[in-house]
Amino acid sequence: MSPDLLIGLIITLVGASTPILLAALGELVAEKSGVLNLGVEGMMLVGAVICFAVTYNTGNPWLGIVAAALASTAVAMIFAVLTLGLSANQVATGLALTIFGTGFSALFGRAYTGKPLALFKSIFPDWLATHPVLKVLFGYSPLVYFSFAMVALVWWFLAKTRGGLILRAVGESDISAHSMGYSVIGVRYGAVAFGGAMAGIAGSCFPLMLTPQWVEGLTAGRGWIALALVVFGAWRPIRLLGGAYLFGLVMTIELYAKAGGGVAHVLPSQFWAALPYLATILVLVLISLRQSSNTSAPACLGKPFLPTN
């Protein structure tokens, strides 16, 4: 593989990995607090369409990202009110949220199909961003650097801060967290809102850096991949980063291998497509064999907490 090709592969890989990383980071925080939100795909679609609409109308991608984050947070609040406020079943509510997001984005986006958008390019000066070698560092959309910053931030928050400790306590043992005087429901509201905002920003990656247009169902299932990724990363931000790039690599290397001719045909392409999910199941088994408490699923994941009990 020539250096140029390697640089190209890296740039494509970064693009494919960024949205699933962002969405999965948000879901990780939600799950760490004990909430399983299966509505990631729906929230991403809402983020994608709102981002497109705002960027298209204002010409300002930053506004588009902020609007996407706000819109998806609002959608996540539907989920939060139902599951946290009214202790409805999280699985069913999450699925309903995806149905909602898919329907809403398709209906709202009808006014924007068939319209092109300019890509949200690097903010570095051109001689860096388009330099044949240095572009591997400086050639990305700000969303990419943001995703790295968020990995660090989420890691720091969960591992090093009191807030993170409380959040994890809420996810591991809601009853003891409650008896220590923490607001279980309040913490979870915050976590779900963060998950929504991140899913919205993940959605905005599509019109801004991957596919500068709006069509129905633009995210094509990436939200579900993000859900798998959280598990694959064993609920730890740094592993999640590695996992996102591994998933991204599986999604892109096939395209490079195919275009390179020959090699990829040893196994059917469907095998490659199924590989991330099989790997995730394997990771789950390995985690359980290790029995290490900080890599297993949050104990309260998916269970409602009723403060009046």
Partner: peptide
């Protein structure tokens, strides 16, 4: 239909 994969 998978615009992101097509782009990649």
């Amino acid at each position: 239909f998978d615009p992101a994969k097509e782009a990649d």
